[in-house]
Simulated assay, not measured.
Amino acid sequence: MAMKKKLLASVLALGSLNVNAVTFTGPDLDYIAAAEAYGITGETWETPEFIASAMPHVYKFTHSYTLHKGDYVLKLPQGKPLDLASVMVPDYDGEMSAKDFMLNRMQNHNAVILKDGKLVHEHFGNGMTEFSPHLDMSVSKSFTAMAAAIAVGRGQLSWDDFAVKYVPELQGSAFASATVQEVSDMRTAVVLAPGTKEKYWDVRLSNAQGYYGEEAAEPYPNGTLDFFPLIKERQAYAMGEKYDYQDVNSELLGLIVDRATGQSFTNILEQDLLQKVGVAADAHFMSDKKGLAMALPV
Rank of each mutant, 00 (worst) to 15 (best):
G213M: 01
T62Q: 13
S142P: 01
T179F: 02
V19P: 09
H284W: 06
T62R: 14
L296G: 06
A52I: 14
Y237W: 15
P168G: 12
N222Y: 05
V73H: 13
M106I: 12
Y243F: 12
P133C: 05
N267I: 03
L253Y: 09
V120R: 02
G291E: 01
G117D: 12
Y212L: 12
M186C: 07
L119S: 11
E241M: 10
D28F: 00
K115M: 14
D116S: 14
R204W: 05
V257M: 04
Y92W: 15
T188C: 14
F50L: 08
E198C: 11
Y92R: 10
E233W: 03
L12V: 03
A2L: 12
H57W: 13
Q181E: 12
Q181D: 04
L230P: 13
K75R: 15
H121I: 03
P56C: 06
V183L: 07
D100P: 10
K289A: 07
V298Y: 01
T44W: 04
D161W: 11
L12Q: 04
R234C: 09
A189K: 03
T25M: 10
S250E: 10
N20H: 15
G195D: 04
E182A: 15
Q246T: 04
F285V: 01
Q107W: 11
P27C: 02
M186R: 03
Q271D: 02
N126S: 14
T261P: 02
D136E: 11
Y59I: 02
Q181Y: 14
A151S: 01
M128S: 09
A33F: 02
G94T: 08
D288T: 05
V11M: 12
M106W: 09
V190S: 01
P48N: 09
L269I: 11
T179E: 02
V152R: 09
L225G: 11
M96R: 04
P168E: 08
L103F: 01
V152G: 00
V191P: 00
T62S: 14
G254R: 08
M102E: 13
A52P: 06
S142G: 13
G39Y: 07
M186E: 11
D244R: 01
H109V: 14
A151G: 06
F101D: 05
V89H: 07
Q181R: 12
N18L: 09
F61P: 00
T66I: 01
R204D: 14
A35V: 09
L192E: 13
I256E: 07
S287I: 11
V190Q: 13
